[in-house]
Design a protein around this nucleic acid. Structure first.
Lengths: 150, 150
DNA sequence: CTAGTTGCAAATGCTTTGCACAGGA
DNA sequence: TCCTGTGCAAAGCATTTGCAACTAG
């Protein structure tokens, strides 16, 4: 999958490149690899991990500064979400599907995603009640996962 | 208030000191001032701000390292909660009342606290559904506050 | 050709830590 | 006295930035 062809990813990448061009910016092989790694990774990766995976999987070296700049760019484009789990290192994930939140194991660091329609609805009410124009929300639940609780 | 007497705070501080002694550790004037500032501040303060406020309000200088060490200590004692709003600087608040969440204005940085029983209940269900032993949760809603939306 | 992009290294800025000294118990 | 807490400065680390070289359009 990662080294072969994936039609969905190809379409996604093509679309991304088109949008980049549309706003007058330039595409690069580096951004392609970064998106590829984010797309095929189910995990929430740090900048360091993204760089390492590109090296491992494709034997291409990308400067860490480039990764950080790409993440900022992708975040501005609303294509990437940031996740802070409290250890001072920002993790990134592609924002392809609908909004979801996270369940984090405080013992092993495992991250599980979940979606909850009630929370999605509730945040609107809370924002309204406080006269806020809602933008987004982050909900993170901390606990012990099944394995760590044995 | 801040320079006068506040019975509630005095009791709180006395109790804190008793607990510190109970676990065989030592009290210090520095921790007293740090707690005092946290107690009377309605805001969520950074380590730097805590140190500055102590200097301004009481004309006492406390090393920033001491503040960080105190925050870690107070956090371990579950007396202080950390708040990360995404700018890379950790903010602290005394955890005296029941759990609450935050509404943050992405324009001016204003922080409003709110409590929502539904969210409190819902997190339990979500944790259970994923076989997690619930510890705590953090919910943060981002948006534009009234003033910033004019 | 021209402006955005990359890579490296240096700089930044928050937080932590080593160590000598001060000060609670 | 003994051991923890403090203060300072240095170290650590993730992230950002300056700049020269590179490259897409």
């Amino acid at each position: 999958m990662e080294n072969g062809n994936d039609v969905a990813f190809d379409i996604f990448l093509k679309n991304f490149k088109k949008n980049v061009s549309k706003i007058g910016l330039k595409n690069s092989i580096q951004k392609d690899y970064i998106l590829k790694v984010l797309y095929f990774s189910k995990e929430h990766l740090t900048a360091e991990e993204i760089s390492n995976k590109i090296k491992q999987n494709y034997n291409v070296s990308i400067g860490i500064a480039t990764v950080y700049r790409a993440m900022k760019f992708l975040n501005d484009m609303k294509l990437v979400d940031l996740l802070e789990i409290g250890d001072g290192i920002v993790r990134y994930e592609l924002n392809l599907s609908k909004h979801h939140d996270h369940l984090i194991c405080t013992s092993c660091g495992k991250i599980i995603e979940f979606t909850d329609d009630f929370i999605e609805l509730n945040q609107i009410k809370i924002a309204e009640k406080n006269n806020f124009i809602l933008k987004e929300h982050v909900m993170t639940i901390y606990g012990l996962c099944e394995s760590c609780n044995e």
